[in-house]
Nucleic acid binder design. Structure first.
Lengths: 146, 146
DNA sequence: CGCGGATTTGCAAATGAGTTGAAGATGCAA
DNA sequence: TTGCATCTTCAACTCATTTGCAAATCCGCG
């Protein structure tokens, strides 16, 4: 997966402050992990990864939610009843309504080209359905997991 | 959504026995409710509905899972961290099931006609995407919440 | 019909993800 | 450096779901 180059500690701090969040040590650790991850990460995974560094589960949790509330990350459920978090990247900014493909198996989320899914209006389709949809999600098994 | 006509108690019993499940009273009640529902139902909704009839939450829960294991129903998470169950119907077995529309605001889930969403294959589309998708979810604001 | 063993139920207690309260620690603007 | 709002920590809590188990119920067989 394409990743921006390694970010310095200062880059991370700036990212947090721009989002009106204090740059605390555990917060930076959480943000760093999200940057390093190439698939959405669950709280448990992150907590396990950060426990050795001495951070509390609740702290990791609150930070994950803080980042989400601040608009830096997104929280989603891939169908397995586990919240997973991923950084919101420039390409994810709303407006362009490209659909997402979610792999049930590995949780990988990939972006599909805009227009690759078409909502058709039929006699039975609820009125103005198309205008009301702001996210399209396809679920299945990705090529790798197939 | 098109519903089969009202099913008799015997019809329900037959359905259960064909799936190798005993036709017990709570099981029949659960099955009946699923037949009556026109959207996927959560355990809590069903338990609340059946509590007055005297059925235990755990029993409702187990039955929901039994029906799912037996292939009569399907358990899914529409992205709001709530398991919802719906009967598997004949029309669902033809590869592409009907898409679901999930309201972000009220959580209401509605079923769209099969075929109302089309996956188009373009030059940029990952190979054989269509065959790998087994669920289509549209998210937005429903008419009521709009 | 009526038996008997396997399946189910009901209750209560366990589990586990996720959240919250409170007190002390820390970041940061001035 | 200081003041204080924001954070962290720990433990205790909530709430959905699961489990153990004794008692109740199904249903094939006689």
């Amino acid at each position: 997966m394409v990743r921006a180059g390694k970010l310095s500690l200062d880059d991370l701090k700036t990212q947090l402050r721009d989002a009106d969040l204090r740059a605390t040590a555990p917060r930076l650790a959480v943000l760093r992990c999200l940057h390093e991850a190439d698939t959405p990460v669950s709280h448990a995974e992150l907590a396990d990864k950060l426990a050795p560094e001495g951070w509390d589960r609740a702290t990791v949790y609150r930070n994950l939610n803080d980042l989400t509330d601040a608009g830096l990350a997104r929280k989603r459920d891939l169908g397995d009843h586990v919240w997973r978090f991923e950084l919101l990247r420039a390409s994810d900014t709303h407006g362009d309504a490209h659909p997402h493909f979610v792999c049930d198996e590995c949780g990988e989320v990939s972006c599909l080209p805009e227009g690759s899914v078409e909502i058709k209006t039929t006699r039975n389709t609820p009125v103005r359905l198309k205008e009301r949809v702001h996210e399209i999600q396809l679920k299945g098994r990705c090529e790798r997991c197939n």
